[in-house]
Amino acid sequence: MAKYGMVIDLNKCTSCQACVTACKLENNVQIVSPDDASEGRTMFWMKMLTLKYEGDYPNVKPKAIPRNCMQCDEPPCIKVCPVRATYKTEVGIVAQIYPQCIGCRYCMANCPYTVKVFNWYKTEQPKEVEKCDNPDVSVRPKGVVEKCTFCVHRLQIAEEKAKAEHRKLQEGDYVPACVEVCPAKAIYFGDLDDTNSDVSKASHDYRAFGLLEELGTIPKVRYLNAIE
């Protein structure tokens, strides 16, 4: 079985936020109203995380990295779910089953990366983007927790296509929206178990690190440190 992982090269990343936008549109992530946003209820599956600010006032340079769900190999969130709404699939993706979720938000409290988001209200997209809804992804009802799924719907379709054509899933058949859209090609995606894949090589790079690795969550999203 494949074990999907992602490596984000911070040397190449320009913090352009194309991945953030692509993710929002691909997964029908709710675009909340300004009022809600000011209350701290923005919804992002892929989010720019400002780690630190370099320099002094007029020349401030924020150092931001894209952060999605780390798809941990030892996910703290699945341990605490009382209804099996979140679990690790055999391909290593931490899935969130929306119709099963009861909205207790325990997984959110236990996620050290704080990647999960909650549907505080009924999903109501602004009129402008209503027609852009992706039919491949369900719109989450109010009161459930959602998070980045590595665009698992694309895997469903890609796997099916490959099977219908009697071939194995090849590298590049299945890539999440953020990887596809990245203009700097800073995100590698693929099978970590396949030693020949780009992502597997990149994850063993000397610059590679994982966020909060010391917690033992074994994140499958890794970063390549930027070298000045």
């Binding site: 341990k79 009382p82 209804v83 009861i102 009802p141 009161g143």
Partner: peptide
């Protein structure tokens, strides 16, 4: 905790598919 749930209508999932490893179920 039921007041706190986002989907109290799905409380039955706790009985159908409960996961005893979760401290919330110990609590129940």
């Amino acid at each position: 905790p039921i007041i706190d749930l986002g989907r109290p209508d799905r409380i039955l999932h706790l009985f159908e598919r409960g996961r005893l490893q979760s401290p919330l179920l110990w609590d129940v």
